[in-house]
Nucleic acid binder design. Structure first.
Lengths: 212, 212, 212, 212
DNA sequence: AATGAATGAGGCTTCATTCAT
DNA sequence: TATGAATGAAGCCTCATTCAT
């Protein structure tokens, strides 16, 4: 008898698809591999997703959700700036260790060059954190805590750029190797030490005047 | 037309191949598209390159050469730290405007997950600038110009991370859109202003104590 | 039509492949032709055979099996020498009429020049009948029935050579035409008469002293 | 300066083409390989032969000429039957040792299945020797030297069949291996001994009554 | 007249998608 | 409703043939 896919099986499809897309890219990923790894048939994937493209989009969504969730776990309310940044960095390191595939997915997403897709995706993924970071910077500037001449948007941009590269360094082979080359294996593999260095660099970069 | 391929045609092959690989990735790129765009036949590509893989490697080499050259054009000898960074940032902006495809290629390269490939490529591409940046930071630290507690490797890493994301922001659609979201169109499209903000952020990040 | 391939369709693949390989050789044979003739899609062939090479080997196996079977149908136990030879000749004629393609396959196989392949194939195909023929000759020699000075191996060789050429004469266009030229259409197309002539020639060749 | 091809170069083309066709078959042979081995350019081959097909036909002709010549060297006039056959066998062995490629070509020719080609070729190649052998047999029958009930055509056919297989055994890997399996290495590699066995088998086959 | 690089049709193979069971 | 074998378009690559030099 042919039972409906359990929720767990449905989740498996996405999970394994994310792994496959993250590892091999859109073109390189194979539907039959995904199906095999998910323990379902190829055909049933088409019951849930119109085609490869749509499955990929679902994986993108899932990845974004995870990224958001990881970010929101970093919370941030009611703490001071150094603590906020410290938590974000730590959280990034933890999330990357646990689910590198989602960050690799992000890397894959950004290779797309379909104009409208790109715009829409960037809007969804980047807007919220862009706003949050900008607001935080503006507030800190008003409080005289950081460099007043820094454009809040630019500041948020540089900050997130550093976070993004940290993601890659912990998720993608190439960037991992690159981190080793730059920092040396010792520092690169000691998450804590490197994280502190990064927090320091960011706070300095923002012109933070307080203690930390 | 059965004339021998002119040098310009040979260059076209690589040029169009870089564009194709940069846009669609290794798997997605089509030899027939490359041939058509380069104005040559499919077959002739195989006179110059054993197979798709080798053509790709040639594109990688070409891209690396361009990146190196762009970097070396930034030169840097005999100038002070702020000036060096300023020139590097400017140079990056110019190079990206002129040849975004080479930076997109870099982005593609980094999606590869072939362990040995990755190691070798990273070594070639990253080692030289890693060393240069680290040396510069160490020297500046000895001269008491920048934060003494910053690990030189980490500092170089963060600095290059920012440069890398700048490359992407100027070369890849997604990162371009992302820059717009973070910085707003006005700032994002004004290269000079954004560049200055970035120089400032970096110098602050390094704990630079001088004037600039 | 997306039904699972019936056994008959699977058989068709091999059958049509044998025909194609037998007619055009390994290089000349086209997978798409085979697929079309077998009434299946190109792709499905790769579900059953890893590649062209493997399909060819399957055809070779099939052909060898048929040849063996045809030979074993000739049986031969408990009969006297003339009868044995007569049956073998008749059986050859019948088998060639029914399935000329298998004998054409044999002809194709023997054009290969891959040393190890050749050795292995010859071993499989020739060894058994070589042994059988040699044993029969030795026995007949002991019984004083045939020329004692004939080397049993050489005798078996000449005998099988004549059989082989009979195969070709009935299976391959060129050898068929050649038979016509040598024997004249009348004799060539009268299987029985020619068969008897051949039995006579062989028995004489072996120096058979009995009646027949 | 571009000199006309010397006669030796023209000969080289055919020689190397024969080698290539003999080794790899019509489809497998490569024009550029032939050109390279012959020390000429690909293009010039098309000045002498309209296409691959025509070059192949020229190779066929050349091979036939060689075969004829080899046969005629065996001469045969004014000798008795045993001597004639003995010389033919010896001559075959010598020719195969010296120029196996021509006999491999013959084997290749016979794989063709183009009806009109086949007919024409067989006519050219087989008719003369068919006639010669038949005449000889008829004459011998009239002289009461051999089996009167043997159809002269059939006799000539069986005789030539044995000769043909001897050609193959000395020229093509597969048949060589097969000969080893049947006769054992010792006998197979001793040309003289095997030749004598074959002469004996043939004379017996023809029902020759004289001494030899 | 010879050269040999360029051409491009055609072959093998892959894999997203379909659909009979 | 899930299955997974079948489909066939599309991609990489080869090589007979052409033609500017």
């Amino acid at each position: 008898m042919l039972k409906k896919l359990t929720e767990s099986q449905q989740a498996q499809i996405i999970d394994k698809a994310v792994l496959e897309f993250a590892e091999k890219g859109y073109k390189g990923a194979g539907l039959s591999t995904i199906a095999r790894n998910a323990g379902v048939s190829v055909g049933v994937i088409y019951k849930y997703y119109a085609d490869k493209e749509e499955l990929f989009r679902a994986c993108v969504s899932k990845s974004i959700d995870y990224l958001d969730e990881a970010l929101s776990r970093a919370g941030g309310e009611g703490r001071d700036l150094p603590e906020m940044i410290r938590v974000l960095v730590r959280q990034t390191q933890t999330a990357c260790r646990e689910r590198p595939e989602y960050f690799r997915m992000y890397h894959q997403i950004t290779t797309s060059d379909d104009a409208s897709q790109v715009k829409q995706l960037a809007e969804i993924i980047e807007r919220p954190s862009a706003k949050a970071y900008k607001d935080t910077i503006r507030k800190a500037q008003k409080e005289g805590l950081i460099d007043a001449e820094l454009d809040p948007g630019a500041g948020a941009f540089f900050f997130d750029n550093l976070m993004m590269m940290l993601h890659y360094a912990y998720s993608c082979s190439y960037y991992k190797e690159r981190m080793n080359i730059y920092c040396g294996k010792r520092l690169a593999s000691g998450e804590k030490k490197l994280g502190e260095q990064m927090v320091r660099f960011i706070l300095n970069g923002l012109g933070y005047k307080g203690e930390y």
